[in-house]
Design a protein around this nucleic acid. Sequence first.
DNA 1: GAATATTTTGAAAGCGCTTGCAGAACGTAG
DNA 2: CTACGTTCTGCAAGCGCTTTCAAAATATTC
Lengths: 348, 348
Amino acid sequence: MRRSDLERRVTLAATGSAVTLEMVAQEAGVSPSTVSRILNGTARVRESKVRAVNAAISKLQFMPNPVARSLAGGKSMSVGVVIQTLDSPFYGGALAAIEKGLMRASYSGLFVSGHWRESDERRCIDHLLSRRVEGIILVTSCLPDQEIVHLSRTVPVVLTGRSVVGERIYSVDVDSTQGARLATDYLIGQGHDRIAYIAGPVDHPDAIQRMSGYKASLAAHRIPFSKKLVSVGDYSDAGGHAAMVRLLDAGEKFTAVFAANDQSAYGAMLALYRRGVKVPQDVSVVGFDDLLTSAFTIPPLTTVHRSIDGIGECAAEAMIDLIAGRAPVAKVSSATLAIRESTRPIRA
Amino acid sequence: MRRSDLERRVTLAATGSAVTLEMVAQEAGVSPSTVSRILNGTARVRESKVRAVNAAISKLQFMPNPVARSLAGGKSMSVGVVIQTLDSPFYGGALAAIEKGLMRASYSGLFVSGHWRESDERRCIDHLLSRRVEGIILVTSCLPDQEIVHLSRTVPVVLTGRSVVGERIYSVDVDSTQGARLATDYLIGQGHDRIAYIAGPVDHPDAIQRMSGYKASLAAHRIPFSKKLVSVGDYSDAGGHAAMVRLLDAGEKFTAVFAANDQSAYGAMLALYRRGVKVPQDVSVVGFDDLLTSAFTIPPLTTVHRSIDGIGECAAEAMIDLIAGRAPVAKVSSATLAIRESTRPIRA
DNA sequence: GAATATTTTGAAAGCGCTTGCAGAACGTAG
DNA sequence: CTACGTTCTGCAAGCGCTTTCAAAATATTC
């Protein structure tokens, strides 16, 4: 025996269950292989033995050791999830949904955050790979396409918020363009034609989509696009605030603002409030994401709603499919507009 | 060979790195044991061999397989984190910090959410145990003390937001009482004496602390406590909103409100706004938690600040200590008040 | 320089499970 | 009843690493 009895006992306690498959086999009077086969359904086994083994399992309260299982079978039953930041309500929701979807297939998620930094993201991926995850879900990754394609040669990849094509890649693309279009259309429908836009980070694929939705809507309604009405934020409250301040300082007139995400909208609304500009009386504000809190801002925010849960679960399911070698079936619902109190028709 | 070459190649690809410790040993001209020893620093090894091995490692780009490591060494280098909900900004922050702290000791976190349900929480714990986590961090668990003590016989436990004593239990207790006291004291210092309180769930240990801090402050300033000024919420925006509506409908007068957490405060402020009550002109509002967004509400919220990051990192460090068999050293900074624009001195 | 104390090292036995292979058990046909 | 085809089932060889034990190499002492 390698370890002293005491040590061993401690380890056993520390690992939860000391019951091994071998003990089950012995108890049931069959060989370990048989137990394994019953556990995994890898072969037909005589009914009587199945019963004996099941009895032994519940009697001994056996729980297969996933670590050993991974080592022997080469699969870890876990998938890595790279998220940019855990402390945003938006990503929190996505995470919760992914966890749920993964759990359902009895997979575990290893969550790590990349902080919007390519280098961090790479490190995270390495970490996950070293943990032998069976797949990686990239939630709004900031890595270049090519690198993602490369990664997909090692493990299946699911990514959200952007679209990359590849054999073992699945993009849960939420088509932000359409959502942005929806928001802008609505504003225009309410009579606004000087609509400011608070953009997301310029190099962010998702932000680019949103911007283009905004532009497309303007174009469709023959409203000229003006650079002066665009102020770049960074998807954060603070960024939205600063962007609005810049807009206000520039003195350009507008009756509505479309912010690339809810958090930017929060910041923008605060800046407006500080300058004594009333929402929605003087300026209408529309956000994007429909965070849980957005129904409770002052005033409650009109915003583009996408089912974060839906996206997360879809990503998880797609990953399970990919791992199983099946082609995932797409089915993300499109964006809708949650109309609340931060917008109103422009007065004639 | 057990698998066909093709299969094997696929598996290798799927697991990231095909380089094994044995290959390194061969390359360096030493035995696997030696490589292992160098990797883990478990014994002195001749300098020349160390160099050879390191060279081989970097040449082959070897990454030790944590799965094999776990199986052989009995440790999984991962700790389980049970959180109630991922989509609250508060918990998100805690999570991020825990992840960071764990990562620093090259541990991974397995995050699962219990949804405030005892049964879910138990299931999560079982899941984590079956994954052979080396410890479990319970973020505001709703399990009874006794069950936690029991769990600690299996793995070390760190818990936040409440205090349970036990040999392998460490409570990162944040003493919400003091924070609540701070907030109420401040309001009183500003001349308020009719201070409403929006409580958290009545059976929540943390909520009980906050409530008692509120009461203690009143008592210390000889202000009678009135049940009529207390309205129970559930820590959510919606709950805070409802609680405030009830308060307003009851017609009880107050010049300030202290909400048990920021989200309740958001809801309360919205209810106030809807009734045309101005914050802070008519009523001052104080929250608790200092969520990232709280600096961007309208008006920016005065709130009790506790370093969520600090708590999370502290929990992670304590867990590492516990796993290593060391006694964790406590060091959570106490709460402070972030004074912003939702409060003001009462006019005489 | 022999004898002894130390430090390094390698061989080998696992960790708990999966799985290829071949033998055992059963069934069926001749 | 023998021969042959099917199912079952057990044996044993790993998965990649850690660790014990004892042998090998080196250092120390007289």
